[in-house]
Design a protein around this nucleic acid. Structure first.
Lengths: 357, 357
DNA sequence: ATGAAAGCGCTAACAG
DNA sequence: CTGTTAGCGCTTTCAT
């Protein structure tokens, strides 16, 4: 009978015996090839190859303290926003010969905390994307875990941020240049760091311009919320709408089409690119693209750096947003209009906030 | 100075000393609580808690041979199809207290092989989603790795399959019931197992019915390919189109709209649900939904079973597809038409096949 | 340049 | 029920 699978993986000793050397030499042959004589080295490597020997990382980690693994926690695997980050991170980790532990926190802070704790001993460090933990909890974690955050800023922790504020500025400037004076913003979840950033950018750019900006929301960043919000925006007589993400923007587009309202002739629409539509190149929708894969790469990069020189301080890397203009924006129907100073309304409605970007 | 992070994780000995027991007892307290006297148990657990002790899986795996980890390999992390599977698998693995190693094979067989090999020693088994490896390579791998395949059938290996053939049958029967007689199928990548399945289902259902089925493709399963294929389908005068996936279907929709061809009045469109649009509920598009998350769960399930009883044979689980009818299908323009027997054309064009579903 | 030996944190017999 | 004793596979002084 077959005796299961990995029951008898070749160990370092097998190689050592077969090559007439001590296991120490085999170990060195892999870790510090320079320390063994050329002749021995080739022999050992040959035998290792022949026996299909692969060092056991678990055993190695026992003595070295390093696991060669990196943990990545996302708040919702179903969100393409995170898949993209993950893809980049995964690639970078592999280049550095590190394996990736993946966990989905399912938007649940308790679970997230638990996952980091559970991972802690099996990885050298953890990347958390859009953490739902409180600042205090994160500060707690960083005491005994090397941490890098994506899409979240916390003092003393390295992070890679996506420049939502800058993206918002680009979007608004674009619309302003087209002649829009009255613009609606459909906000995402209130607790979302990136939503706060985007609103911050929005206000900064509106300040001191002859733009009227109306904020709606918070909304769940979903297609349906976009459909709903579209009606609010139309009622508020804006000539352009910027949505928290492209899913919502798509909802807006859909609702406007249903109501027979022309895009972009009657109203212009901009979405923030959750990369949802990456494959289909969002041919209709003007979006603010975020370099998500790169964010993943950089996060791993930061983590690796930090592992290499634990002493040094923390980095914060901010990645630029990029407005991609397409068919959903155009000059407003009747050229210039009001011309009041920037204002904003209170949130008009609450919806349950789920996925964030 | 701070001496890095996990430098001094509390070990089993620390707990043992502090609780006045041997490390064996502590070990048992965690592994087989039943073997320890209640009193001792509580004391040990209390101390462990106090010291924030977490057993080291690496060390444990050294003696037990089990790692408690599962490897999951997907052929493209960027494809939402796989994110969905991953999400389900991740969840199931966590329920079973297993961690997930994730790797992206990037559509590259060499890399895929390498990844499985690299993972092998750190995991108890591997799930490969839409493997790009040859049958021979997979047979090779299964010799020394516990394997479960998703979306791929290979003799002697457990697998979870998505019933593309059944989904296709549903789609065609739906269109037939509406009165369509001449239907086009826009095929996916030629090498894709699921594409072969869908074509198989297509022919099976067409056989013996007064339906004319025209196959186009193979195409890359992308939005752009859908746009292109739309023209071919229109030229072929079909009254309905079934696309390999929803991305392509969206492309079709887009192209038809550009050409001013009404959907569903002039032509009906059905997509296979790559779950791309999960969030937006694909409100316009009739699709064949595939239970992707469940597929992930079942895959892990199968793997766990196999790990538990290595002796037993392999399972193949086939998950049902589900037609979801929405606004993109309706009776054909002029009711009944020709009525010839099922036929099919040769592939009309080749495009580079990338993502598959 | 290489080997011997100790030990990383844990579990698995085997005693008691 | 609990302690003792060996290792698991590898790295790392310390010798040689």
């Amino acid at each position: 009978m077959d005796r299961g699978k990995g029951t008898s993986a070749t160990s370092i000793r097998d190689v050592a015996r077969r090559a007439n050397v001590s296991s120490a030499t085999v170990s060195r042959a892999f870790a510090e090839p320079g320390l063994v004589r050329q002749e021995t080295l080739t022999r050992v490597l040959a035998v290792a190859e022949e026996l299909r020997y692969r060092p056991s990382r678990a055993a190695r980690s026992l003595t070295t303290g390093k696991t060669g693994n990196i943990g990545v926690i996302v708040s919702d695997l179903g969100n393409p926003f995170f898949s993209a980050i993950l893809k980049g991170g995964q690639a970078r980790a592999r280049e550095a010969d590190h394996a990736v532990f993946l966990a989905d926190a399912e938007e649940n802070p308790r679970l997230e905390m638990e996952l980091v704790r559970a991972m802690a001993r099996q990885v050298d460090g953890v990347v958390i994307c859009s953490s739902r933990l409180s600042e205090a909890q994160l500060q707690q974690l960083r005491k005994d875990t090397t941490l890098v955050l994506v899409n979240r800023r916390v003092s003393g922790v390295s992070a890679v941020l996506l420049d939502g504020a800058g993206g918002m500025r680009q979007a608004i400037e674009h619309l302003e240049a087209l002649g829009h004076k009255r613009i609606g913003f459909l906000g995402g979840p209130a607790e979302s760091w990136s939503n706060r950033e985007r609103r911050r950018g929005l206000r900064a750019v509106a300040r001191g311009r002859s733009l009227e900006v109306i904020e709606f929301g918070p909304f769940a960043p979903q297609f349906e919320a976009g459909q709903h919000a579209a009606d609010l925006a139309v009622a508020a007589e804006v000539t352009a709408v910027v949505a928290f993400n492209d899913l919502m923007a798509l909802g807006v587009l859909s609702r406007l089409a249903d109501r027979g309202i022309g895009v972009p002739h009657e109203i212009s629409v901009v979405g923030f690119d959750n990369i949802l539509m990456a494959g289909m190149a969002t041919p209709q929708l003007t979006t603010v693209a975020l370099p998500l894969e790169q964010a993943g790469r950089v996060a791993i990069e930061l983590l690796l750096e930090q592992l290499a020189q634990p002493g040094l301080g923390t980095h914060e890397e901010s990645l630029p947003a990029q407005l991609i203009v397409r068919a959903s924006t155009a000059p407003p129907p009747n050229g210039v209009r009001s011309g009041m100073r920037a204002t904003r309304t209170e949130p008009l409605q609450e919806t349950n906030a789920v996925a964030e970007s």
